[in-house]
């Protein structure tokens, strides 16, 4: 093992729409967090100006709201892509409802999170797209995003004449007032930030330990997959006489 090198194939994992969605999300979250904290606790700039001559805080809020709408639109598109996109973009990856999914989560918890040794070395345990734990964490963040969007639009609803924020006007009575709604909106931001830290760290972790292009995959779309892994899949698919994953190589790496 130590002396033989492994052969890898380049697999197109993240299609362009998925990558665009990812980076829109990433930049939006950065913008939303920054503008959000400015809105929550604006710096007191006591310049000797009249209110008529300045509107910077209004613009900050405008940026916050526009970015939120962009992120919502991009998320709606991503939901659509989870139906029409490739196997790694499919919504089924994100909810571990199968035995395989739960086993994979246990494997990831053991090997990647608790750093226990991998005795079996079963290649199928190495995920090509998301591992099931990561995907499930995105699902949970999606739920938190829904909470964030509903509380945000609910706060906007009363001063907006647009149907989109109006759709969320039921949220305020649900929580009993703007104060608590605002509070939830504010606190959730911290969870997004904590998630970003963990997410970025684990990308770097996988790239460092496995060196399969985990980080660059979100730029190029490609990941490197061990040749043996294809055989495993091929055999499995041949057994059920289904379609065969393309292994014909037009590129060598």
């Amino acid at each position: 093992m130590t002396t033989t090198t492994c052969n890898y194939k380049r697999v197109y994992v993240w299609e362009l729409p998925v990558r665009i969605f990812h980076w829109i999300t990433a930049f939006s979250i950065v913008i939303l967090v920054i503008t959000g904290f400015i809105i929550a606790d604006p710096p007191a700039i006591n310049a000797n100006v009249e209110a008529t001559n300045s509107y910077w805080f209004g613009y900050i809020r405008a940026i916050h709201l526009i970015t939120a709408v962009v992120l919502v639109a991009s998320s709606v598109f991503r939901l659509y892509w989870s139906i029409v996109g490739n196997q790694f973009a499919n919504w089924k990856n994100f909810i571990p409802y199968t035995k395989k999914g739960i086993q994979n989560i246990i494997h990831v918890l053991k090997v990647d999170i608790l750093l226990m040794g991998d005795r079996d070395h079963d290649l199928r345990n190495i995920s090509i797209g998301h591992n099931y734990l990561a995907a499930f964490s995105y699902f949970l963040m999606g739920l938190l995003f829904i909470l964030q969007v509903s509380t945000g639009f609910a706060l906007m609803a009363d001063t907006s004449s647009w149907w989109l924020p109006k759709m969320f006007s039921w949220v305020v009575p649900l929580f009993g007032g703007d104060i608590l709604v605002r509070y939830i909106h504010h606190f959730s931001t911290w969870i997004f930030m904590a998630f970003a830290v963990i997410h970025i760290y684990l990308v770097l972790f996988h790239d460092y330990v496995e060196a399969r292009g985990e980080a660059s995959a979100m730029i190029s779309g490609f990941k490197f997959v061990r040749l043996e892994r294809f055989r495993v899949i091929k055999e499995k698919f041949e057994e059920i006489k289904g379609k065969i994953v393309a292994v014909e190589s037009d590129e060598e790496h």
Binding site: P42, A44, I45, N46, A47, V49, E50, A51, T52, N53, S54, Y55, W56, F57, G58, I60
Partner: peptide, 11 residues
């Protein structure tokens, strides 16, 4: 309110 939009805040 205009002071809010202009970012003029009293501490």
């Amino acid at each position: 309110r205009p002071n809010f939009d202009a970012g003029l805040f009293a501490e």
